[in-house]
Amino acid sequence: MLDRNHRANQRERTLLSKTSFIRALSPMASSKMLDGAHIATMPARASIFREGEAALSFYCLLSGYVRLYRVSRDGRQADIRICGPGDMFAECLIYGGDKYRFNAQAAENVTLARFDMQDVRELAEQDPTVAKAIMATLSDHLLSTMDCVVNDRLHTAPQRVADYLLTRCATENGPTSIRLPYQKSLLAGMLGLAPEALSRAFSSLRRTGVTVRGRVIQIGNVEALKDV
């Protein structure tokens, strides 16, 4: 259930204006999108929507992280995507169906903007920049999904973790450290791993100088991590 629902204030409009989706719109369309944004804050683990519910809105995340996932018949969960600040989600349903195809849950305290699907459909008919921005967002998500499929099929668990760490290293060689933006259980789901498989992967990376202390990951040698 959404909490503290209100129209976007100036600070929130500024944050939304910096997202790639809003930046791609014409001044008229951008103004209408910002005017139509409803801002909500939600606590960690709160449900934003559930699979099978009527798809009336899509969202842009302003702060925190949101987990998108599906549940099998026997109750197992599979993460689809972890959304961070500036990311949009459920916009695929603007032209793709009338029910949500997955679940969305706040992974921590979040602030998000909600947009009405029908209002945006009508705006897209009036202004082609809206349709183009939607297509660009969907294209980005498709390419990202393809990368995830390839990663799952071609890389071992330690390789997936090493690749994730390398994309966040501030240096090309030598020692460094990074701080995970969210808890390790969320990282496990994002990488398609069970929590225990993630722990084993981190253990196997100790030989390259990787140590884990809470959310802080110490990397002894970035070059060694590249050879995993």
Score class of each variant (00 low, 15 high):
residue 1 M to K: 10
residue 3 D to T: 12
residue 3 D to I: 09
residue 4 R to N: 14
residue 6 H to C: 08
residue 7 R to Y: 10
residue 8 A to D: 06
residue 8 A to P: 04
residue 9 N to G: 15
residue 12 E to H: 10
residue 13 R to W: 06
residue 21 F to N: 09
residue 28 M to E: 09
residue 29 A to C: 06
residue 30 S to R: 14
residue 35 D to P: 00
residue 37 A to D: 04
residue 39 I to Q: 00
residue 54 A to S: 12
residue 54 A to P: 05
residue 55 A to Y: 03
residue 59 Y to E: 07
residue 61 L to K: 06
residue 69 Y to I: 07
residue 71 V to F: 05
residue 78 A to E: 14
residue 80 I to V: 14
residue 80 I to L: 15
residue 84 G to H: 06
residue 88 M to K: 00
residue 92 C to D: 13
residue 95 Y to L: 15
residue 97 G to I: 08
residue 100 Y to K: 03
residue 104 A to L: 02
residue 112 L to D: 08
residue 113 A to S: 13
residue 119 D to Y: 10
residue 121 R to C: 07
residue 126 Q to M: 13
residue 143 L to D: 12
residue 150 V to E: 14
residue 159 Q to K: 03
residue 163 D to K: 02
residue 164 Y to I: 05
residue 170 A to N: 12
residue 171 T to L: 08
residue 173 N to T: 13
residue 176 T to Q: 07
residue 178 I to N: 06
residue 183 Q to D: 09
residue 184 K to A: 13
residue 185 S to F: 06
residue 189 G to Y: 05
residue 190 M to D: 15
residue 194 A to I: 04
residue 194 A to R: 14
residue 197 A to T: 14
residue 200 R to H: 10
residue 205 L to Y: 01
residue 207 R to G: 09
residue 207 R to W: 05
residue 216 V to E: 11
residue 220 G to M: 02
residue 220 G to L: 01
residue 224 A to G: 01
residue 226 K to G: 03
residue 228 V to R: 02
